[in-house]
Amino acid sequence: MAIMGVESVIFGVDDVDKCSRFWRDFGLVDLGSDERTGTFEVSSGSQVVVMRDDDPRLPPRSIEGNGIRLTVWGVDTAANLESLVRGLETVVEVIRDDQGAAFFKAPDGQHVGLRVWQKRAVVSVADPVNTPGSIKRLNQTRQWRRRAIPKTINHVVFFSPDYVGSYEFYRDHLGFRYSDHSKGVGIFARADGTYEHHSIFWVNSDLPFAPDGHGFMHIAFGLDDIDEVMIGANIMEKRGWRNTSVNSSGGISRHRLSSAIYYYVDNPNGGEAEYHADTDYLDDNWVPRAWSFKFAALMWAARIPPMFAGDDIPWEVDFDADERSFEAFRKGRSNPHQAELDQMTNDDEHAI
């Protein structure tokens, strides 16, 4: 075990005040903010840092506009951090700071950090779920929640010009585990010290709505249940934060791949912010799968995008422990799903 998940993300933004207000409304704890920077925290101790995009402390720009400029992964011990650094130094330049943290630029353009981090335990009280044939909550109501309280940063998502190569770098040099492959769209992987279905997702930047090359797509925060997701969504809408992104699926939805309930909000910090609940949890006994992207994307949605609404969605899932499915999608080769992918446009009726 080494990487425990996202320790912090640093956003470079054009309006610190507006972007800080977004995180307060979203449910993060404000640890202090001013006109140039803001720091916010979730229950696990992971932090979101907002900085002016011209702040000299930020790494060089690798994306256009607002977005994550640096992702810092938390490592459980100093010894494990040093082991990771020794391997990384064989392939990339690594810079150290006075506290021993390590920073480098991944081949796909991401600026990445490693820091020793003690992740805090998260306390959640789940409501038992009743079904007609199985009563688990007798003479007891569900919790009456007042707002969403994000507990974890579950994952970050980036566009990559070579999403297979991006995954392989993290596999070979950071110990990430392959979770699932949405064929033609992207690869999901988890850090070796986590159980969430994925800690990072690389999306194919050849998709019609994607930027050229490296880019930031969204960041997801773990909540307890569907009630918390929808209460958070209601609050964000009431406070003027919109849900119009290409990932929105018309509102609250559930992925088939990962099983997660999700709701995206347009994020002034860049990309989208996601409320995320009831995801699959995995360990090293998990066998990865390769999915048709149409089948993987949605189990249900508040408003099903037209490309997922037909009767021709293929129930196409293969076990893929040997990563054989990657061969058809390596950079420079013809994508066998390109005709379907070309149906996507950058409006809110087409989601992945």
Rank of each mutant, 00 (worst) to 15 (best):
A2W: 05
I3D: 01
M4V: 09
G5D: 01
S8D: 08
G12Q: 00
V16M: 06
V16Q: 00
D17W: 05
K18P: 00
F22C: 09
W23P: 09
R24I: 15
F26C: 04
G27H: 08
G27F: 02
L28Y: 03
S33F: 05
R36S: 09
R36C: 02
T39R: 14
V42M: 01
S44W: 06
V49S: 02
D53G: 07
D54W: 14
P56G: 05
P59E: 03
N66E: 03
L70M: 01
L70G: 04
L70E: 00
T71D: 04
G74Y: 05
V75E: 01
V75H: 00
D76E: 11
A78C: 07
L81H: 08
L81D: 04
D97T: 04
A101Q: 11
F104Q: 05
Q110L: 14
V112H: 00
R120N: 11
V123L: 13
S124C: 07
A126E: 13
N130A: 05
N130E: 06
P132E: 08
K136T: 11
R137L: 12
Q140P: 03
Q140A: 13
R142S: 14
R147C: 04
A148E: 07
I149T: 14
P150I: 07
T152H: 09
N154S: 15
H155K: 13
D162N: 14
Y163I: 09
S166E: 03
E168Y: 00
E168M: 05
R171D: 07
H173S: 03
H173I: 02
L174F: 03
G175W: 01
F176D: 02
R177H: 15
K183R: 15
V185L: 13
I187K: 04
F188P: 03
R190D: 02
Y195E: 13
H198L: 13
I200V: 15
F201I: 12
F201Q: 02
N204Y: 10
P208D: 08
P208M: 02
F209L: 07
P211N: 04
G213S: 07
M217A: 15
H218M: 01
F221G: 01
G222C: 04
D224L: 06
M230S: 12
M230C: 11
I235E: 06
G240W: 05
R242W: 04
N243F: 04
S245I: 05
S248E: 04
S249C: 15
G250R: 01
G251M: 10
S253C: 02
H255M: 07
H255A: 01
I261R: 03
D266M: 12
D266K: 09
N267I: 00
N267C: 08
N269E: 05
Y281S: 10
Y281R: 15
D284L: 09
W286H: 15
V287R: 13
F293M: 06
K294S: 02
F295R: 11
A297F: 00
A301L: 10
A301F: 08
I304D: 10
P305N: 14
P305K: 09
P305F: 14
M307A: 05
M307T: 12
P314R: 10
E316W: 01
A321Y: 13
D322C: 08
R324N: 03
R333A: 03
S334K: 15
S334Q: 14
H337V: 02
Q338C: 01
Q338N: 06
A339E: 15
E340M: 11
D342S: 13
T345A: 10
H350C: 11
